[in-house]
């Protein structure tokens, strides 16, 4: 059944119990993501230790794909440097869009591979990643956050 390929157990689990969900005090950077098509909204907050993502949490309201993707992302990038995190994004992006990407090197994130059969849902899965890129780019994220937090 194809639906079970999209909504794998890992996805359903992270949707029901999103990890790293909630506010983050004294964040060094934050960014908002919004998908006007479906109303998905999320706020991502980071704590940086030099170049390393020391902590990351998210809040918001979204569909199962977007919530699970954000939850999986926070697990995957915690402890990584900016460059490493962006490299994971590259690979997730390929997983979501390229037929030949297996996701074998992506661990739990590979559960998102079913999404590429549902083009209308790719944006849901990538929203959090675009938000992360924004939070990590000094102009939009860390810089802006300094003035608002």
């Amino acid at each position: 059944m194809e639906l079970n390929d999209l909504y794998r157990d890992v996805i359903l689990d992270h949707n029901r119990n999103p990890r790293n969900f909630g506010p983050l005090q004294n964040a060094d950077a934050q960014a908002e993501g919004f998908n006007p098509l479906c109303g998905d909204r999320l706020t991502l907050r980071l704590k940086l230790d030099g170049d390393t993502i020391a902590d990351v949490r998210f809040e918001g309201d979204g569909c199962a794909i977007s919530t699970a993707s954000a939850s999986l992302m926070t697990e995957a990038v915690k402890g990584k440097t900016r460059a490493e995190a962006l490299d994971v994004f590259e690979r997730v992006h390929r997983l979501l869009t390229a037929d030949d990407a297996s996701g074998a090197d992506l661990g739990k994130l590979a559960a998102l591979s079913g999404v590429r059969e549902y083009p209308a849902r790719v944006k849901c899965a990538s929203l959090c990643w675009h938000t992360l890129t924004k939070a990590l780019s000094p102009a939009d994220g860390a810089g802006a956050a300094v003035s608002t937090e």
Partner: peptide, 12 residues
């Protein structure tokens, strides 16, 4: 159940 997920399940 988010409406968006519902839409996908129903399309199925």
């Amino acid at each position: 159940v988010h409406p968006h997920d519902l839409g996908t399940v129903l399309d199925e």
